[in-house]
Nucleic acid binder design. Structure first.
Lengths: 167, 167
DNA sequence: GACATTTATTTAACATATTAAGAGATCAGT
DNA sequence: ACTGATCTCTTAATATGTTAAATAAATGTC
């Protein structure tokens, strides 16, 4: 039997601790124990520290990720950018277009391989990045402080291992 | 899905080790050390275990999350579902509509509060869930095995702490 | 050197994320 | 009972996620 019944009231059954879980389904994880969901929630929790600042400067998470990568690698191909930023190519196409239209990035074609598109930040974007980056770094430190540096380091290690998992 | 960086060909600058990094910014994290990005990558890595199965049955991640929650809580309000599944209400509206159109869920209005929409699985969806769930559980165990149960438990603890962080 | 095969990027079609605003229902205080 | 605030859900507008397919340039093979 796979269905475990939640207690029924009319409108809502709260996330019950449910101590009456039968042994046949003892290994069945509860909904909230899902690792992918927890990773999603954890990401939301951390992004909550940065979102207000990004919203203030009118950039989305993904746009900032692209700008941050370009600030570090100077010039990148579209595919490299997609890999680094964890954004699929079709999504990146739109992001690049909008960032170019807003004057944050510039593009040129590789002279060797006409397929490749090389992307880099404009001077204005570099200046903007330098101005905003400290504030975001501050929020990052806030996270590390609240969690403790030790746990933060441990989390990094574990996440690296998870990232390297392959089906 | 997200491969590593391709080797540099054109004029693209590699992940600059940049020995000339001044001390003022010695604590500036490299791009790939961002916790939100790592959480995103880790989530991708884990979802890679499940995605093929979900694609096989023609359901998206979010749709499956909703179905999984309803299977556990039997009947939920739209807002409860949004909270549990970590999906914003406007997104959930569409998901609910599509899941209803495809015969996976049914909805009724609360008799007490005409604002509230109560949602539950159809019998067909319950049967489908019971059939597919074991396969997904198997993939879940594959993750736990590759990572080790101890690290898995540790990761759960750390993620719970991160989730409870507040700006 | 013609040809099928790869590779980088884009387009298309649909689903979801995000923020703001709107329509209805309920509740609080008067 | 009346008004205003609050709550639930939906709609709207824009941006991104996801898969498949198209385009064009480079590569490999015979």
């Amino acid at each position: 039997m796979f269905n475990n019944l939640a207690p029924e009231t009319d409108s809502a059954s709260a996330p019950t601790a449910d101590a009456s879980c039968p042994k046949e389904v003892i290994d069945m994880r509860k909904f909230n124990d899902s690792i992918p969901l927890k990773l999603l929630r954890a990401r939301e929790a951390t992004m909550a520290f940065f979102r207000p600042i990004l919203q203030e400067i009118g950039l989305t998470e993904q746009q900032w990720r692209v700008i941050r990568a370009l600030n570090e690698y100077e010039e990148l191909e579209s595919k490299q950018l997609a890999d680094i930023c964890c954004i699929l190519s079709p999504s990146l196409t739109g992001i690049i277009n909008r960032l170019e239209a807003s004057g944050h990035i510039k593009r040129r074609k590789s002279t060797e391989d006409q397929r490749r598109m090389l992307i880099s930040l404009t001077d204005e974007a570099k200046t903007m990045f330098a101005g905003v980056s400290p504030r975001l770094e501050g929020r990052y430190h806030a996270i590390a402080d609240k969690l403790s540096a030790e746990k933060m380091a441990l989390l990094h290690e574990l996440l690296d291992e998870v990232i390297n998992l392959e089906p």
